[in-house]
C-alpha cells in the first residue's frame, strides 16, 4: 500500500510538470481501459440489466402471438412459493451439508497431514489440484464409471470384499442417488478446501505451538486450542464457498444423473437450466436466477467481510 501511495505522489509530481502531460495521461488511461470496459459493459452489465427486465415479464414463448406481458413481481412470488423450487433448493442444501459435514473435517485432516514434512511432498501437493481442475463433465463421466451397475468399480470392490452379494444399480434408487452425487462433488471440492487450509496453517506462527509445548500441551490440546480457532476464518470461507458451489452445481449432475431418477438429483442449478432452456420459461427462470444470484452475492459479501485484510490473507 505504501508503495502505491508513494507511486501516486511521485507520478503526480511528474505529471504536474505540465498540464498537457497530465491530460494526456488521463486520455491514455481511458484508451487503455476502453476495450475491456466495452466488453464488460456490453456482455456483463447490459445482460444483467436485461435479465432484470425479463424477470418482470411473461414472454409467452409458447404463444408468441400474445407478445410479452408485464407481470411485475409475479415471477418472483411464483419462484418463492413453488414446491419444485423448494425441493430443488433443499437438494442443493443437502449437497452443501454433505460437502461441509464431510468435506471440512476431511480437508482439515488432509491439510494437517500434508503440512508436515514427508518425502515427495511437492508431488502429492501438486496432485491435490487435479480433482479440482478436472472438467465437470469428466467428473460426471468418472463417477458414472465408478457407480456403473454392471461394470463399475464400486460394485466390483464391494463384491470382492464380500460386502454385497449382488451388483447394485446405485444411481437408480432415488434415495441413494443424491447422496452419491454429493459424494462425487465432495471428492472434487475437498482438494480446494485442503489448499485453503494449508495456506491458513502456514500463517500460524510456529512459536505459538512451541510455547504451548513448553507448557505441556499435548497434541490434542494444541489442535483444539490453537489450530482449530486460528483456522476458523478459513473454515468459514470454506463453508461459504461450498454453499455457493452447491447453489450453482450443474455439469456434474447433467452428466451423472440428468437430474433423475424421478427428479431425485434435480438440484437448483439444474432446475434453473431446465426452466430456462428446456421449458423456455425465460421470465420465471430469470426471476429465480436473480434470487439465487442475490443469495450467492450475499454470501460472497459475507466472505469478503471475513477475509478483511490482516485477518486471513490468502
Amino acid at each position: 500500500m505504501e508503495v502505491t501511495i508513494r507511486a501516486r505522489t511521485n507520478l503526480h509530481l511528474l505529471m504536474a510538470k505540465s498540464r498537457t502531460l497530465r491530460y494526456r495521461t488521463r486520455l491514455v488511461g481511458l484508451l487503455m481501459i476502453t476495450p475491456g470496459l466495452a466488453m464488460i459493459v456490453s456482455l456483463l452489465f447490459y445482460p444483467l440489466f436485461h435479465s432484470l427486465v425479463i424477470s418482470l415479464y411473461d414472454l409467452n414463448i409458447r404463444a408468441p402471438w400474445l407478445g410479452p406481458r408485464f407481470v411485475g413481481l409475479w415471477n418472483y412470488l411464483q419462484a418463492l412459493s413453488s414446491p419444485d423450487v423448494q425441493a430443488a433448493a433443499g437438494r442443493s442444501l443437502y449437497l452443501a451439508a454433505v460437502g461441509i459435514g464431510l468435506g471440512i473435517p476431511l480437508s482439515m485432516a488432509f491439510a494437517l497431514i500434508l503440512n508436515r514434512p514427508f518425502p515427495l511432498r511437492g508431488l502429492v501437493r501438486g496432485l491435490l489440484i487435479v480433482p479440482w481442475i478436472l472438467p465437470g463433465t469428466v467428473q460426471g463421466l468418472l463417477w458414472s464409471r465408478i457407480y456403473d451397475p454392471h461394470y463399475g468399480a464400486l460394485n466390483g470392490v464391494l463384491y470382492q470384499l464380500g460386502i454385497i452379494r449382488d451388483y447394485i444399480p446405485w444411481l437408480l434408487d432415488p434415495q441413494r442417488a443424491l447422496l452419491l452425487v454429493a459424494l462425487a462433488n465432495t471428492w472434487a471440492t475437498v482438494p480446494m478446501m485442503t489448499l485453503l487450509y494449508l495456506a491458513g496453517l502456514q500463517s500460524i506462527p510456529e512459536e505459538i505451538y512451541e510455547a504451548a509445548q513448553v507448557d505441556g500441551a499435548g497434541w490434542w490440546a494444541r489442535f483444539r486450542h490453537i489450530t482449530l480457532p486460528l483456522l476458523m476464518p478459513i473454515t468459514l470461507i470454506n463453508l461459504i464457498l461450498k454453499t455457493i458451489d452447491a447453489l450453482t452445481l450443474f455439469d456434474l449432475v447433467y452428466v451423472l444423473t440428468g437430474g433423475g431418477p424421478a427428479n431425485a438429483t434435480q438440484v437448483i442449478g439444474y432446475y434453473l437450466y431446465d426452466a430456462a432452456f428446456q421449458r423456455l420459461e425465460y421470465g420465471y427462470a430469470s426471476a429465480l436466477a436473480w434470487l439465487i444470484a442475490l443469495t450467492a452475492v450475499g454470501l460472497t459479501v459475507l466472505y469478503s467481510r471475513i477475509t478483511r485484510p490482516g485477518e486471513a490473507r490468502l
Binding site: 464488460i40 456482455l43 456483463l44 452489465f45 447490459y46 445482460p47 444483467l48 436485461h50 435479465s51 425479463i54 447453489l247 450453482t248 450443474f250 442449478g269 434453473l272 437450466y273 430456462a276 425465460y282 427462470a285 430469470s286 436466477a289 436473480w290 439465487i292 444470484a293 450467492a296 452475492v297 460472497t300
Partner: peptide
C-alpha cells in the same frame, strides 16, 4: 458482477 452465477446473464444473452 462477476460473482453473479453465469446463468443470470445467459438468458438475455
Amino acid at each position: 458482477v462477476q460473482m453473479v452465477p453465469v446463468i443470470v446473464l445467459l438468458i438475455p444473452m
